[in-house]
Design a binder for these strands. Structure first.
Length: 145
DNA sequence: GCCAACGTTGGC
DNA sequence: GCCAACGTTGGC
């Protein structure tokens, strides 16, 4: 199982909207960046992802699961662009802010800190576990959900 | 709302 | 293949 992080501007697509979709999930359309697309192409069913609110909020608000492998983006007018579908898995009991992440030296290598403009990015397992801990989740228990 | 950082495009 | 111009993202 691999770990990822998806950014979304909450006034465009929020965690609340994602949760409202339930197990049906939602296509992560609109990505027009090769690095982000390539990350999505590497995702497997059941991989986990943090859902991060950018521009407003600036915090990890929930955990999602990949529920459809990479496929053409239905909203793209160009066949270059693929995307996965994700579904909400659980809330972060306590949202983990960018400030908290920046202040934690275990997380200083994250793309969230070093490459702020990458909207779909991989998360290392130790980083995943640390953010779960900060947010009040047990990362090991989460694996079995 | 501003602007720095970064990515892409296209003329040469 | 370089690089100027342009577009977008996202923190502040």
């Amino acid at each position: 199982m691999k770990y990822w992080l998806f950014k979304s501007e909450p006034f465009k697509w929020s965690w609340e909207q994602q949760k409202a979709k339930g197990d049906e999930g939602e296509e992560w359309d609109g990505i027009r960046n090769y690095q982000a697309r390539n990350n999505m192409r590497e995702m497997k069913l059941g991989d986990r992802a943090f859902f991060y609110h950018s521009r407003e909020g600036l915090e990890v608000v929930g955990v999602a699961e990949i529920c459809a492998l990479s496929h053409p983006d239905s909203k793209a007018d160009d066949e270059r662009w693929d995307c996965v579908d994700i579904k909400a898995l659980c809330d972060m009991p306590t949202a983990v802010s960018l400030g908290d992440i920046k202040a934690n030296e275990k997380l200083e290598e994250m793309s969230l800190v070093k490459n702020t403009r990458l909207s779909v990015q991989p998360v290392l397992e130790n980083e995943w576990m640390e953010i779960c801990r900060m947010g009040g989740l047990n990362g090991q228990t989460l694996k079995k959900l």
